[in-house]
Amino acid sequence: MAKINMCGVRKTFGNGHTALKEMDTEFQTGTFTVILGPSGAGKSTLLRLVNGLEPLTSGEITVDGIPVRGKNLKKIRGDVGMIFQQFNLIGRLNVMTNVLVGRLWNRPWLTSVLYLFGREDRAIAEKVLMRVGLAEKAWERADRLSGGQQQRVGIARALAQEPRVILADEPVASLDPVTGDNIMQILREICDRDKITMIVNLHQVDLAKRYADRVIGLNAGEIVFDGTPKLLDSSILSHIYRRNSVVKETTPDALLAYA
């Protein structure tokens, strides 16, 4: 439902390390994009920039024409859901409350601080919980669930935002292969049915081949491949995952950042 535009995007961290250099690309509405690349390539940084969790150094990112910065952040973060490798649920609260966290961005301040939610919010939360197949776990404490179940709560939380974009940072890296495949299926289904723009960081090339519409190869902060997953062969993969370019450009500071 939303188009993301990146124009001359550059990110340099406080320690002087440039994680992304001059990135220009677009993410079309309703496409499923997988980003591949070696550790430290800048995949997580890219997603965090889209959600405004890190400020840009230069360039501009827009979501449906609205720039990601300053006053727009709350609205953008409401429109952009995020899924994490470590799930990042609030362990002591029940599953329902964790899903309702996705509604906070447009709840009135006072009632939300008292844990009060409206009927519509509750209905949305129930719907998305059903969708990820966890309705019967609604009143369990989140930290009592298995890893795969926790990730499904994470997806439900993102869905409860009724987002137009979902960013997923290695959503299956902490899960076994079968569970991981199941999570990818859910994400793909969401993308197809709701026309949500999906950007997923992965380390599993086979999953990228199976689920992606488009694959971006990122290496040392630069796009080194951009195309359909069919094009991924061993020479392209070794190009994406080549190490020397990373090492060559690492300053001592950057090495420290790695450690």
Partner: peptide, 17 residues
């Protein structure tokens, strides 16, 4: 971070996380 990413404010983050 997950709270911030879903657009929650500071007090909301405090009350939930």
């Amino acid at each position: 971070e997950a709270m911030e990413a879903s657009g929650a404010g500071r007090t909301q983050t405090l009350m939930y996380a």
